[in-house]
């Protein structure tokens, strides 16, 4: 009986820990599939041999173009290349109808965050992989894990629910920006990164 009685708080503690560490992350995030699949690896490196900048260009005025528009895809994909179902659907539903793909962007930050790619790429000489990891060599788009409360991707918080960073590119919260900037740029103000 005493053992059972002292088990109650331990069971409670275990339940709480279980709820916080295991149940909560699964409940907090919902997975959404991308509208169509995209194979980065097939386009880069040994595939089509393109570099990141070929599609995700920095404009003349230094503005980052983000995800290319459908017209840029159409330059090669006016007709389906290969016979995959995904490719056929992509060409029929988006390219031929000149409709933009509503991609779910893993790296999307809230509107009030300002991130100039050009400064980080040209001045700080950061490689794309530093922040985006191996995304450029992935062979498919993993499901988008959407935070049910804030609506943003799990990638922003990082894969660990505890916020423990395993890789430089794992998690892009303000603290992650600061941790780098506190080393490389001490002349910072709120307005530098907020709009």
């Amino acid at each position: 009986m005493t053992i059972t009685r002292s088990l109650v708080p331990i069971a409670g503690l275990a339940t709480g820990l279980f709820a916080g560490w295991v149940v909560f992350p699964t409940v907090l995030y919902t997975t959404v599939d991308q509208p169509v699949q995209f194979n980065h690896a097939a386009h880069t490196g040994n595939g089509a041999g393109m570099s990141c900048q070929d599609c995700h260009a920095l404009g003349q005025d230094g503005r980052f173009a983000g995800i290319p528009g459908i017209h840029q895809c159409a330059e090669c994909h006016e007709e389906p290349i290969g016979s995959s179902e995904n490719e056929r659907r992509f060409v029929e539903e988006y390219v031929q109808q000149n409709r933009e793909v509503p991609w779910l962007v893993y790296a999307r930050q809230p509107d009030n965050a300002y991130f100039p790619h050009v400064v980080h790429v040209h001045k700080a000489k950061l490689a794309c992989e530093t922040c985006h990891g191996k995304h450029g060599s992935s062979s498919g788009l993993r499901p988008y894990e959407m935070n049910r409360i804030s609506g943003y991707s799990r990638d922003i918080w990082g894969s660990s629910i505890a916020g423990i960073k395993s890789q430089a590119w794992d998690g892009m919260k303000m603290d992650d920006c600061i941790s780098c900037h506190s080393v490389h740029n001490n002349d910072r103000a709120c307005i530098d990164c907020h709009k």
């Binding site: 109650v8 069971a11 409670g12 503690l13 709480g16 820990l17 709820a19 916080g20 909560f24 505890a162």
Partner: peptide, 15 residues
Amino acid sequence: KFAGASAAGILFSPL
């Protein structure tokens, strides 16, 4: 006791 302990447990989680 159970509720108190689970609350304490939750406090030690990221929730």
